[in-house]
Design a protein around this nucleic acid. Structure first.
Lengths: 230, 230
DNA sequence: AGGGCCACTGCCAAGTTCCGGCAGCAGCCT
DNA sequence: AGGCTGCTGCCGGAACTTGGCAGTGGCCCT
């Protein structure tokens, strides 16, 4: 087995563990000796893979993915850089930070003249008007999307009408004027859209909703006429 | 020398050639035998590196970069994916296609459950109003930025005032309402901003301007109070 | 504290892979 | 056609990897 494939297999096995796994078990899973496993772990850690191992406990991998060597064209790198700038202006601070870090990782391994060129990239993203409440709401809503739990909030509609809502969040839409949450609304018993800047008193519940968000997403995309992307 | 480092060096040497380079010269540059070079080329081509070799001519590398194995967190992958969606909605078809291809390359090597998860990513970018003229202008302007040549166009200002302009393009700003070109204007002898949707008769010259765009960019950023990014 | 389990490192012989030289084939250019 | 070039298979020697062993040190439980 090529070493690179073994590395990916190692990481994949680690990724699937719910608790620490011993070196002996991991080596058996991959089909190598314990001595070779120690060597492999050492190489991976040297590559920046966040594997933690403690005597008497075993190995744990922090969430993440090792991408194998990939070839990108200059235009593709440029598109990724511009994309990171868009995320940086339009999203919450956590996603912004993630975009910055991802781009920094790519820049760090590019040839010097190319990363210099990207620093002088002539494509900028203008500032987006988003108040602090909305910026604070975005990570909460993203968390609800990820964990598929109910969200509650009070909503001021277009006409100024005030209402309390309990919803199953489906998606966030980033529009030119506003960020919008698409959700299944229990009050209206149908899919509704809510401008995030008109939400207040956002509450994340710990109750998981059914059906799965994936199902609701499919429904929403059909209803909105949104084609399946990538 | 580790094989991965040698591969990167090989690509770097190839990248710097202006015309085809023979295998013999390339091998000498890297410090390996011709037989080993043939083996390395074979491995790189197998990894998708676009190296072309023809008997009697030599080797040519199509523009691009081989990124070594990189570790990304789930949030970083999510940020890259959202960024690609932003570029897809806000930019010209060429940059859009590059964003799509870059993301597809990343998705292709992620574990299946993760690329599935990204397909169901609940972050969408709403459509942006951009007419066909503007969409057609963007690649031209990007080309002018890249090659640092003059641009000519007729411009209809805010008040309806019509004027002919010859400019040194500095940067494109993607705002919520419009795409804006920041450029040194020869008519006004200063930096000016032009909404791209108000430009007509765009003409790309083949005359290179001085000072270098990098210098103008620095000036513009100072003037606009834009901090150095990433 | 002691014992068992665990991660980790150095060492060495055996096994595996890589390297360079050679021969031969085929393509391109003059 | 001839010279130069890319490409592949083969083989012996060089370099690297592997697994077993011994020893060190940390963590957890009794």
């Amino acid at each position: 087995m090529p070493l690179a494939n073994r590395n990916l297999l190692l990481i994949d096995v680690l990724r699937r563990q719910r608790r620490p796994i011993t070196g002996r078990a991991l080596a058996a899973e991959v089909g190598i000796s314990i001595r070779t496993l120690y060597r492999d772990i050492r190489v991976l850690v040297g590559q920046g893979v966040p594997i933690e191992g403690e005597a008497g406990i075993g190995y744990v991998l922090r969430p993440g993915f090792l991408l194998p060597p990939l070839m990108f064209t200059p235009d593709e790198i440029e598109a990724l850089a511009l994309g990171a700038r868009f995320v940086g202006e339009h999203s919450d601070s956590r996603l912004t930070e993630s975009a910055r870090q991802a781009l920094a990782k790519i820049l760090a391994v590019l040839p010097q003249d190319t990363s210099d060129h990207l620093r002088d990239l002539g494509l900028f993203v203008g500032p987006v008007t988003m108040d602090a409440t909305e910026a604070a709401a975005l990570p909460t809503i993203r968390e609800a999307l990820r964990t598929e739990v109910f969200l509650s909030f009070s909503y001021t509609g277009r006409t100024g009408r005030f209402s309390e809502r309990r919803v199953k969040p489906i998606a966030i839409g980033f529009f030119q004027q506003a960020r919008v949450l698409a959700a299944w609304c229990e009050t209206r018993d149908d899919i509704r859209h809510f401008r995030i800047d008109r939400m207040a008193g956002l509450l994340l519940s710990n109750q998981r909703y059914r059906p799965a968000r994936r199902r609701l997403l499919h429904l929403w995309k059909q209803k909105e006429g949104i084609p399946d992307q990538h």
